[in-house]
Design a protein around this nucleic acid. Structure first.
Lengths: 231, 231
DNA sequence: AAGAATAAATAAACACTGTATATTTATGGT
DNA sequence: ACCATAAATATACAGTGTTTATTTATTCTT
Protein backbone atom coordinates (compact mmCIF):
# COMPACT_ATOMS: atom_id res chain seq x y z
CA UNK A 1 0.00 0.00 0.00
CA UNK A 2 2.92 2.31 0.54
CA UNK A 3 4.04 3.92 -2.67
CA UNK A 4 7.54 3.53 -3.90
CA UNK A 5 9.31 6.87 -3.89
CA UNK A 6 10.57 7.76 -7.31
CA UNK A 7 14.14 7.02 -8.11
CA UNK A 8 16.80 9.58 -7.25
CA UNK A 9 16.90 12.06 -10.10
CA UNK A 10 20.65 12.43 -9.80
CA UNK A 11 21.20 8.90 -10.89
CA UNK A 12 18.70 8.51 -13.67
CA UNK A 13 18.19 11.95 -15.12
CA UNK A 14 16.43 10.69 -18.21
CA UNK A 15 14.29 13.80 -18.34
CA UNK A 16 17.33 15.97 -18.93
CA UNK A 17 18.86 13.42 -21.28
CA UNK A 18 15.72 13.46 -23.41
CA UNK A 19 15.80 17.23 -23.70
CA UNK A 20 19.50 17.24 -24.46
CA UNK A 21 19.07 14.70 -27.21
CA UNK A 22 16.16 16.67 -28.60
CA UNK A 23 18.31 19.81 -28.76
CA UNK A 24 21.07 17.86 -30.44
CA UNK A 25 18.73 16.60 -33.11
CA UNK A 26 17.14 20.01 -33.55
CA UNK A 27 20.56 21.53 -34.08
CA UNK A 28 21.39 18.85 -36.62
CA UNK A 29 18.29 18.60 -38.75
CA UNK A 30 15.99 21.36 -37.54
CA UNK A 31 13.01 21.45 -35.24
CA UNK A 32 10.67 20.12 -37.89
CA UNK A 33 12.16 16.65 -37.90
CA UNK A 34 12.08 16.21 -34.16
CA UNK A 35 10.94 12.68 -33.40
CA UNK A 36 10.30 10.89 -30.14
CA UNK A 37 11.32 7.59 -31.68
CA UNK A 38 14.57 9.04 -32.96
CA UNK A 39 15.34 10.42 -29.51
CA UNK A 40 14.59 7.07 -27.91
CA UNK A 41 16.74 5.31 -30.49
CA UNK A 42 19.69 7.52 -29.71
CA UNK A 43 19.22 7.06 -25.98
CA UNK A 44 18.94 3.29 -26.30
CA UNK A 45 15.44 3.17 -24.86
CA UNK A 46 12.04 2.55 -26.38
CA UNK A 47 9.78 5.36 -27.46
CA UNK A 48 6.99 4.80 -24.93
CA UNK A 49 9.51 5.17 -22.12
CA UNK A 50 9.58 8.88 -22.87
CA UNK A 51 5.96 9.06 -21.78
CA UNK A 52 7.11 8.53 -18.20
CA UNK A 53 8.77 11.94 -18.37
CA UNK A 54 6.57 13.89 -20.78
CA UNK A 55 2.85 13.24 -21.22
CA UNK A 56 3.16 13.70 -24.98
CA UNK A 57 5.33 15.20 -27.66
CA UNK A 58 3.83 18.67 -27.25
CA UNK A 59 4.82 18.71 -23.58
CA UNK A 60 8.40 18.01 -24.56
CA UNK A 61 8.29 20.81 -27.10
CA UNK A 62 6.89 23.19 -24.50
CA UNK A 63 9.75 22.32 -22.16
CA UNK A 64 12.21 22.98 -24.97
CA UNK A 65 10.60 26.33 -25.75
CA UNK A 66 10.87 27.39 -22.12
CA UNK A 67 14.53 26.40 -22.11
CA UNK A 68 15.10 28.37 -25.30
CA UNK A 69 13.34 31.43 -23.90
CA UNK A 70 15.46 31.21 -20.77
CA UNK A 71 18.68 31.05 -22.76
CA UNK A 72 17.48 33.92 -24.94
CA UNK A 73 16.48 35.97 -21.92
CA UNK A 74 19.86 35.35 -20.29
CA UNK A 75 21.54 36.67 -23.40
CA UNK A 76 19.33 39.76 -23.43
CA UNK A 77 19.90 40.55 -19.75
CA UNK A 78 23.64 39.99 -20.00
CA UNK A 79 23.85 42.33 -22.96
CA UNK A 80 22.03 45.01 -20.99
CA UNK A 81 24.13 44.62 -17.88
CA UNK A 82 27.39 44.78 -19.80
CA UNK A 83 26.74 48.48 -20.41
CA UNK A 84 26.77 51.05 -17.60
CA UNK A 85 23.28 51.81 -16.34
CA UNK A 86 23.63 55.50 -17.11
CA UNK A 87 24.20 54.84 -20.80
CA UNK A 88 20.57 54.27 -21.74
CA UNK A 89 20.89 54.37 -25.53
CA UNK A 90 24.00 52.22 -25.28
CA UNK A 91 22.03 49.63 -23.40
CA UNK A 92 19.22 49.70 -25.90
CA UNK A 93 21.60 49.23 -28.79
CA UNK A 94 23.41 46.40 -27.03
CA UNK A 95 20.14 44.59 -26.41
CA UNK A 96 19.19 44.94 -30.05
CA UNK A 97 22.51 43.62 -31.26
CA UNK A 98 22.39 40.72 -28.84
CA UNK A 99 18.93 39.90 -30.15
CA UNK A 100 20.13 39.33 -33.68
CA UNK A 101 23.33 37.64 -32.53
CA UNK A 102 21.43 35.08 -30.48
CA UNK A 103 18.99 34.43 -33.30
CA UNK A 104 21.75 33.90 -35.86
CA UNK A 105 23.64 31.63 -33.47
CA UNK A 106 20.57 29.56 -32.64
CA UNK A 107 18.30 29.85 -35.68
CA UNK A 108 16.47 26.62 -34.89
CA UNK A 109 15.76 27.76 -31.35
CA UNK A 110 14.55 31.09 -32.64
CA UNK A 111 12.16 29.39 -35.04
CA UNK A 112 11.06 27.04 -32.31
CA UNK A 113 10.06 30.02 -30.18
CA UNK A 114 8.56 32.37 -32.73
CA UNK A 115 7.72 30.19 -35.69
CA UNK A 116 5.39 27.25 -35.94
CA UNK A 117 7.80 24.55 -37.04
CA UNK A 118 5.76 21.67 -35.65
CA UNK A 119 2.54 20.36 -37.14
CA UNK A 120 -0.44 21.41 -35.09
CA UNK A 121 1.53 22.51 -32.06
CA UNK A 122 0.47 25.71 -30.34
CA UNK A 123 2.36 26.82 -27.27
CA UNK A 124 0.32 26.93 -24.04
CA UNK A 125 0.64 30.60 -23.21
CA UNK A 126 0.17 30.18 -19.46
CA UNK A 127 3.21 27.94 -19.28
CA UNK A 128 5.43 29.89 -21.63
CA UNK A 129 4.53 33.42 -20.53
CA UNK A 130 6.92 33.72 -17.57
CA UNK A 131 10.06 32.94 -19.52
CA UNK A 132 8.78 34.88 -22.53
CA UNK A 133 8.06 37.97 -20.46
CA UNK A 134 11.43 37.72 -18.79
CA UNK A 135 13.20 37.69 -22.15
CA UNK A 136 11.43 40.89 -23.18
CA UNK A 137 12.00 42.49 -19.78
CA UNK A 138 15.53 43.54 -20.67
CA UNK A 139 14.26 45.85 -23.36
CA UNK A 140 11.25 46.97 -21.34
CA UNK A 141 13.41 47.94 -18.39
CA UNK A 142 15.61 50.15 -20.51
CA UNK A 143 12.67 51.79 -22.24
CA UNK A 144 11.21 52.42 -18.81
CA UNK A 145 14.45 53.98 -17.60
CA UNK A 146 14.35 56.23 -20.66
CA UNK A 147 10.80 57.17 -19.80
CA UNK A 148 11.68 57.90 -16.17
CA UNK A 149 14.53 60.09 -17.38
CA UNK A 150 11.99 62.08 -19.36
CA UNK A 151 13.59 61.11 -22.63
CA UNK A 152 10.90 58.84 -24.10
CA UNK A 153 9.51 60.30 -27.30
CA UNK A 154 6.24 58.50 -28.08
CA UNK A 155 3.54 61.10 -28.61
CA UNK A 156 0.00 59.90 -29.22
CA UNK A 157 1.01 56.32 -28.65
CA UNK A 158 -2.11 54.14 -28.92
CA UNK A 159 -3.57 53.24 -25.56
CA UNK A 160 -4.49 49.79 -24.38
CA UNK A 161 -8.19 49.13 -24.69
CA UNK A 162 -9.96 48.26 -21.49
CA UNK A 163 -10.84 44.77 -22.65
CA UNK A 164 -7.16 43.92 -22.91
CA UNK A 165 -6.15 45.29 -19.52
CA UNK A 166 -6.51 41.92 -17.85
CA UNK A 167 -4.08 40.21 -20.17
CA UNK A 168 -1.74 43.12 -19.78
CA UNK A 169 -1.66 42.75 -16.03
CA UNK A 170 -0.76 39.10 -16.36
CA UNK A 171 2.08 40.03 -18.65
CA UNK A 172 3.19 42.76 -16.27
CA UNK A 173 3.19 40.28 -13.43
CA UNK A 174 5.91 38.18 -15.03
CA UNK A 175 7.65 40.91 -16.96
CA UNK A 176 8.78 43.13 -14.10
CA UNK A 177 5.68 45.24 -13.48
CA UNK A 178 6.78 47.99 -15.77
CA UNK A 179 4.86 51.00 -16.93
CA UNK A 180 2.19 50.40 -19.54
CA UNK A 181 3.56 52.88 -22.04
CA UNK A 182 7.07 51.47 -21.71
CA UNK A 183 5.72 47.99 -22.27
CA UNK A 184 3.82 49.08 -25.36
CA UNK A 185 6.73 50.93 -26.90
CA UNK A 186 9.02 47.99 -26.19
CA UNK A 187 6.57 45.73 -27.98
CA UNK A 188 6.70 47.86 -31.08
CA UNK A 189 10.49 47.95 -31.01
CA UNK A 190 10.51 44.23 -30.54
CA UNK A 191 8.29 43.78 -33.60
CA UNK A 192 10.70 45.79 -35.73
CA UNK A 193 13.69 43.79 -34.60
CA UNK A 194 11.81 40.55 -35.01
CA UNK A 195 10.68 41.51 -38.51
CA UNK A 196 14.19 41.86 -39.83
CA UNK A 197 15.64 38.92 -37.93
CA UNK A 198 12.88 36.49 -38.80
CA UNK A 199 13.06 37.37 -42.48
CA UNK A 200 16.82 36.99 -42.42
CA UNK A 201 16.66 33.60 -40.70
CA UNK A 202 13.98 32.22 -42.98
CA UNK A 203 15.90 33.45 -46.03
CA UNK A 204 13.02 35.66 -47.04
CA UNK A 205 15.04 38.85 -47.22
CA UNK A 206 15.70 39.98 -50.76
CA UNK A 207 19.32 39.36 -51.67
CA UNK A 208 20.63 42.82 -50.86
CA UNK A 209 19.29 42.23 -47.40
CA UNK A 210 21.92 39.57 -47.00
CA UNK A 211 24.01 42.55 -46.02
CA UNK A 212 22.14 42.12 -42.78
CA UNK A 213 24.61 43.96 -40.60
CA UNK A 214 24.22 47.30 -42.28
CA UNK A 215 20.48 47.14 -42.63
CA UNK A 216 20.07 46.00 -39.05
CA UNK A 217 22.26 48.71 -37.59
CA UNK A 218 20.44 51.31 -39.65
CA UNK A 219 17.16 50.09 -38.23
CA UNK A 220 18.42 50.17 -34.66
CA UNK A 221 19.60 53.74 -35.02
CA UNK A 222 16.27 54.70 -36.56
CA UNK A 223 14.52 53.22 -33.54
CA UNK A 224 16.70 55.26 -31.23
CA UNK A 225 16.10 58.41 -33.23
CA UNK A 226 12.36 57.92 -33.17
CA UNK A 227 11.85 57.03 -29.53
CA UNK A 228 14.68 58.64 -27.56
CA UNK A 229 15.12 62.37 -27.12
CA UNK A 230 18.76 63.49 -27.05
CA UNK A 231 20.02 64.06 -23.53
CA UNK B 1 6.05 4.07 -80.81
CA UNK B 2 3.98 7.19 -81.04
CA UNK B 3 3.22 8.65 -77.63
CA UNK B 4 -0.30 9.18 -76.48
CA UNK B 5 -0.94 12.89 -76.06
CA UNK B 6 -2.03 13.70 -72.58
CA UNK B 7 -5.69 13.99 -71.88
CA UNK B 8 -7.37 17.32 -72.45
CA UNK B 9 -6.82 19.36 -69.32
CA UNK B 10 -10.23 20.95 -69.55
CA UNK B 11 -11.94 17.67 -68.90
CA UNK B 12 -9.84 16.12 -66.18
CA UNK B 13 -8.37 19.02 -64.25
CA UNK B 14 -7.24 16.92 -61.35
CA UNK B 15 -4.23 19.17 -60.87
CA UNK B 16 -6.49 22.09 -60.01
CA UNK B 17 -8.80 19.88 -57.96
CA UNK B 18 -5.84 18.72 -55.86
CA UNK B 19 -4.77 22.28 -55.14
CA UNK B 20 -8.32 23.35 -54.35
CA UNK B 21 -8.76 20.50 -51.91
CA UNK B 22 -5.42 21.33 -50.33
CA UNK B 23 -6.51 24.93 -49.80
CA UNK B 24 -9.77 23.76 -48.32
CA UNK B 25 -7.99 21.55 -45.83
CA UNK B 26 -5.45 24.25 -45.02
CA UNK B 27 -8.25 26.67 -44.29
CA UNK B 28 -9.94 24.12 -42.06
CA UNK B 29 -7.11 22.69 -40.01
CA UNK B 30 -4.04 24.74 -40.92
CA UNK B 31 -1.13 24.17 -43.22
CA UNK B 32 0.63 21.91 -40.76
CA UNK B 33 -1.85 19.07 -41.11
CA UNK B 34 -1.80 19.03 -44.90
CA UNK B 35 -1.78 15.42 -46.04
CA UNK B 36 -1.63 13.88 -49.48
CA UNK B 37 -3.65 10.91 -48.32
CA UNK B 38 -6.34 13.15 -46.88
CA UNK B 39 -6.55 15.07 -50.14
CA UNK B 40 -6.82 11.85 -52.11
CA UNK B 41 -9.48 10.56 -49.74
CA UNK B 42 -11.59 13.64 -50.23
CA UNK B 43 -11.19 13.46 -53.99
CA UNK B 44 -12.08 9.78 -54.10
CA UNK B 45 -8.74 8.74 -55.56
CA UNK B 46 -5.74 6.95 -54.16
CA UNK B 47 -2.74 8.79 -52.79
CA UNK B 48 -0.20 7.68 -55.40
CA UNK B 49 -2.43 9.10 -58.13
CA UNK B 50 -1.37 12.56 -56.97
CA UNK B 51 2.14 11.73 -58.06
CA UNK B 52 0.98 11.98 -61.66
CA UNK B 53 0.45 15.69 -61.09
CA UNK B 54 3.07 16.61 -58.51
CA UNK B 55 6.41 14.79 -58.19
CA UNK B 56 6.15 14.92 -54.40
CA UNK B 57 4.47 16.73 -51.55
CA UNK B 58 6.96 19.58 -51.59
CA UNK B 59 6.13 20.33 -55.22
CA UNK B 60 2.48 20.66 -54.30
CA UNK B 61 3.38 22.99 -51.45
CA UNK B 62 5.50 25.10 -53.78
CA UNK B 63 2.57 25.40 -56.18
CA UNK B 64 0.36 26.47 -53.28
CA UNK B 65 2.89 29.07 -52.16
CA UNK B 66 3.02 30.54 -55.64
CA UNK B 67 -0.76 30.73 -55.72
CA UNK B 68 -0.79 32.43 -52.34
CA UNK B 69 1.86 34.93 -53.41
CA UNK B 70 -0.17 35.71 -56.51
CA UNK B 71 -3.33 36.31 -54.50
CA UNK B 72 -1.36 38.43 -52.04
CA UNK B 73 0.27 40.38 -54.83
CA UNK B 74 -3.09 41.01 -56.47
CA UNK B 75 -4.36 42.44 -53.20
CA UNK B 76 -1.32 44.68 -52.88
CA UNK B 77 -1.56 46.01 -56.43
CA UNK B 78 -5.30 46.59 -56.18
CA UNK B 79 -4.83 48.56 -52.97
CA UNK B 80 -2.26 50.75 -54.66
CA UNK B 81 -4.30 51.36 -57.77
CA UNK B 82 -7.40 52.29 -55.77
CA UNK B 83 -5.67 55.53 -54.78
CA UNK B 84 -4.85 58.29 -57.30
CA UNK B 85 -1.28 58.07 -58.53
CA UNK B 86 -0.50 61.59 -57.33
CA UNK B 87 -1.31 60.72 -53.73
CA UNK B 88 1.95 58.99 -52.92
CA UNK B 89 1.61 58.74 -49.15
CA UNK B 90 -2.00 57.69 -49.55
CA UNK B 91 -0.89 54.85 -51.77
CA UNK B 92 1.78 53.79 -49.31
CA UNK B 93 -0.70 53.76 -46.45
CA UNK B 94 -3.24 51.82 -48.48
CA UNK B 95 -0.67 49.18 -49.35
CA UNK B 96 0.27 48.81 -45.71
CA UNK B 97 -3.31 48.46 -44.59
CA UNK B 98 -4.04 45.94 -47.33
CA UNK B 99 -1.02 43.97 -46.18
CA UNK B 100 -2.41 43.40 -42.71
CA UNK B 101 -5.94 42.90 -43.98
CA UNK B 102 -4.89 40.13 -46.34
CA UNK B 103 -2.81 38.46 -43.64
CA UNK B 104 -5.65 38.52 -41.12
CA UNK B 105 -8.09 37.22 -43.71
CA UNK B 106 -5.78 34.41 -44.81
CA UNK B 107 -3.58 33.65 -41.80
CA UNK B 108 -2.83 30.13 -42.97
CA UNK B 109 -1.73 31.38 -46.37
CA UNK B 110 0.42 34.01 -44.73
CA UNK B 111 2.12 31.42 -42.57
CA UNK B 112 2.51 29.14 -45.55
CA UNK B 113 4.42 31.89 -47.35
CA UNK B 114 6.50 33.38 -44.58
CA UNK B 115 6.57 30.74 -41.88
CA UNK B 116 7.88 27.22 -41.97
CA UNK B 117 4.74 25.28 -41.16
CA UNK B 118 5.85 22.10 -42.90
CA UNK B 119 8.47 19.69 -41.62
CA UNK B 120 11.66 19.99 -43.56
CA UNK B 121 10.21 21.99 -46.43
CA UNK B 122 12.25 24.87 -47.80
CA UNK B 123 10.84 26.84 -50.71
CA UNK B 124 12.89 26.67 -53.93
CA UNK B 125 13.73 30.33 -54.36
CA UNK B 126 14.10 30.20 -58.14
CA UNK B 127 10.53 29.02 -58.52
CA UNK B 128 8.97 31.30 -55.94
CA UNK B 129 10.91 34.47 -56.68
CA UNK B 130 8.78 35.81 -59.55
CA UNK B 131 5.52 35.81 -57.64
CA UNK B 132 7.26 36.95 -54.46
CA UNK B 133 8.93 39.86 -56.20
CA UNK B 134 5.68 40.85 -57.83
CA UNK B 135 3.92 40.99 -54.47
CA UNK B 136 6.56 43.38 -53.14
CA UNK B 137 6.55 45.42 -56.31
CA UNK B 138 3.49 47.41 -55.27
CA UNK B 139 5.37 48.91 -52.34
CA UNK B 140 8.60 49.26 -54.28
CA UNK B 141 6.89 51.15 -57.06
CA UNK B 142 5.43 53.69 -54.67
CA UNK B 143 8.73 54.15 -52.84
CA UNK B 144 10.35 54.68 -56.22
CA UNK B 145 7.78 57.30 -57.17
CA UNK B 146 8.50 59.05 -53.89
CA UNK B 147 12.19 58.94 -54.70
CA UNK B 148 11.63 60.31 -58.21
CA UNK B 149 9.56 63.11 -56.72
CA UNK B 150 12.55 64.01 -54.57
CA UNK B 151 10.68 63.20 -51.37
CA UNK B 152 12.52 60.09 -50.24
CA UNK B 153 14.25 60.67 -46.93
CA UNK B 154 16.78 57.90 -46.38
CA UNK B 155 20.14 59.46 -45.64
CA UNK B 156 23.13 57.17 -45.22
CA UNK B 157 21.09 54.15 -46.16
CA UNK B 158 23.38 51.10 -46.19
CA UNK B 159 24.53 50.14 -49.65
CA UNK B 160 24.36 46.73 -51.21
CA UNK B 161 27.66 44.94 -51.03
CA UNK B 162 29.17 43.90 -54.33
CA UNK B 163 28.90 40.20 -53.59
CA UNK B 164 25.12 40.51 -53.39
CA UNK B 165 24.68 42.52 -56.57
CA UNK B 166 24.01 39.39 -58.61
CA UNK B 167 21.12 38.27 -56.44
CA UNK B 168 19.80 41.81 -56.48
CA UNK B 169 19.72 41.88 -60.26
CA UNK B 170 17.72 38.66 -60.32
CA UNK B 171 15.26 40.17 -57.88
CA UNK B 172 15.10 43.36 -59.93
CA UNK B 173 14.36 41.32 -63.04
CA UNK B 174 11.11 39.99 -61.62
CA UNK B 175 10.27 42.89 -59.36
CA UNK B 176 9.92 45.63 -61.94
CA UNK B 177 13.52 46.76 -62.40
CA UNK B 178 13.28 49.48 -59.80
CA UNK B 179 16.01 51.60 -58.34
CA UNK B 180 18.32 49.92 -55.86
CA UNK B 181 17.72 52.41 -53.06
CA UNK B 182 13.95 52.18 -53.49
CA UNK B 183 14.17 48.44 -53.35
CA UNK B 184 16.26 48.53 -50.20
CA UNK B 185 14.03 51.00 -48.40
CA UNK B 186 10.95 49.00 -49.39
CA UNK B 187 12.56 45.93 -47.90
CA UNK B 188 13.04 47.64 -44.58
CA UNK B 189 9.46 48.90 -44.58
CA UNK B 190 8.32 45.41 -45.45
CA UNK B 191 10.25 43.99 -42.51
CA UNK B 192 8.51 46.39 -40.12
CA UNK B 193 5.08 45.55 -41.42
CA UNK B 194 5.88 41.87 -41.39
CA UNK B 195 7.19 42.04 -37.83
CA UNK B 196 3.92 43.30 -36.43
CA UNK B 197 1.68 41.16 -38.60
CA UNK B 198 3.54 37.92 -38.05
CA UNK B 199 3.57 38.42 -34.29
CA UNK B 200 -0.12 39.20 -34.33
CA UNK B 201 -0.97 36.14 -36.41
CA UNK B 202 1.12 33.76 -34.34
CA UNK B 203 -0.40 35.20 -31.14
CA UNK B 204 3.02 36.28 -29.94
CA UNK B 205 2.06 39.88 -29.38
CA UNK B 206 1.71 40.77 -25.72
CA UNK B 207 -1.94 41.22 -24.88
CA UNK B 208 -2.08 44.98 -25.23
CA UNK B 209 -0.94 44.39 -28.79
CA UNK B 210 -4.29 42.77 -29.38
CA UNK B 211 -5.33 46.33 -29.99
CA UNK B 212 -3.62 45.69 -33.29
CA UNK B 213 -5.37 48.40 -35.25
CA UNK B 214 -4.01 51.26 -33.22
CA UNK B 215 -0.50 49.91 -32.95
CA UNK B 216 -0.39 49.10 -36.64
CA UNK B 217 -1.63 52.49 -37.76
CA UNK B 218 0.88 54.16 -35.44
CA UNK B 219 3.64 52.16 -37.06
CA UNK B 220 2.52 53.01 -40.57
CA UNK B 221 2.50 56.72 -39.80
CA UNK B 222 5.93 56.43 -38.22
CA UNK B 223 7.20 54.83 -41.41
CA UNK B 224 5.78 57.67 -43.44
CA UNK B 225 7.28 60.25 -41.11
CA UNK B 226 10.69 58.65 -41.30
CA UNK B 227 10.99 58.06 -45.02
CA UNK B 228 8.80 60.68 -46.76
CA UNK B 229 9.53 64.38 -46.78
CA UNK B 230 6.40 66.55 -46.66
CA UNK B 231 5.43 67.88 -50.07
C1' DA C 1 -11.45 -1.71 -87.22
C1' DA C 2 -7.35 -4.00 -84.85
C1' DG C 3 -3.47 -3.63 -82.40
C1' DA C 4 0.31 -1.37 -80.33
C1' DA C 5 1.85 2.36 -77.33
C1' DT C 6 1.35 4.97 -73.46
C1' DA C 7 -0.87 7.77 -69.85
C1' DA C 8 -3.10 7.39 -65.54
C1' DA C 9 -5.07 4.99 -62.14
C1' DT C 10 -4.77 1.31 -58.52
C1' DA C 11 -3.02 -2.29 -55.14
C1' DA C 12 0.27 -3.53 -52.13
C1' DA C 13 4.07 -2.72 -49.52
C1' DC C 14 7.94 -0.14 -46.93
C1' DA C 15 9.63 2.77 -43.54
C1' DC C 16 8.44 6.04 -40.83
C1' DT C 17 5.59 8.78 -37.14
C1' DG C 18 2.92 9.54 -32.26
C1' DT C 19 0.50 7.09 -28.96
C1' DA C 20 -2.35 3.54 -26.14
C1' DT C 21 -2.49 -0.81 -23.75
C1' DA C 22 -0.85 -4.67 -21.47
C1' DT C 23 3.01 -6.84 -19.53
C1' DT C 24 7.33 -7.42 -17.50
C1' DT C 25 11.26 -5.89 -14.63
C1' DA C 26 13.30 -3.65 -10.89
C1' DT C 27 13.25 -1.10 -6.74
C1' DG C 28 12.08 0.35 -2.06
C1' DG C 29 9.05 0.22 2.25
C1' DT C 30 6.90 -2.54 5.66
C1' DA D 1 10.27 -12.09 2.39
C1' DC D 2 6.55 -9.89 0.55
C1' DC D 3 4.21 -6.52 -1.97
C1' DA D 4 3.05 -2.12 -3.90
C1' DT D 5 4.62 0.67 -7.31
C1' DA D 6 7.64 3.08 -10.66
C1' DA D 7 9.62 2.52 -14.98
C1' DA D 8 10.77 0.04 -18.64
C1' DT D 9 9.33 -2.96 -22.63
C1' DA D 10 6.52 -5.42 -26.24
C1' DT D 11 2.96 -5.05 -29.10
C1' DA D 12 -0.33 -2.89 -31.69
C1' DC D 13 -3.08 0.83 -34.07
C1' DA D 14 -3.80 4.50 -37.10
C1' DG D 15 -1.69 7.70 -39.58
C1' DT D 16 2.00 9.67 -42.88
C1' DG D 17 4.96 10.13 -47.67
C1' DT D 18 6.63 7.34 -51.15
C1' DT D 19 7.99 3.26 -54.32
C1' DT D 20 6.97 -0.63 -57.12
C1' DA D 21 4.38 -3.49 -60.00
C1' DT D 22 0.09 -4.04 -62.14
C1' DT D 23 -4.11 -2.94 -64.24
C1' DT D 24 -7.26 0.09 -66.81
C1' DA D 25 -8.26 3.28 -70.26
C1' DT D 26 -7.33 6.15 -74.02
C1' DT D 27 -5.25 7.49 -78.36
C1' DC D 28 -2.40 7.03 -82.46
C1' DT D 29 -0.87 4.15 -86.20
C1' DT D 30 -1.44 0.72 -89.52
Amino acid sequence: MSPRPRRDKQQSNLQEAIKDTAWKQIAETGAATLSLRAIARELGITAPAIYNYFPDRDALVTALIIEAYTSFGDSQLEARDAIPAENLTGRMLAIGMAYRAWALTHPQRYQLIFGTPLPGYVAPVEQVLPSAARSLSALVSVVDEIRKAGRLNAPDFPEVKDEYKFGFEMWQKFGGNYDLLSLSVATLIWARVHGLVSLEISHNLPPFGANGDGLYLYEMLAVEKQFVKPS
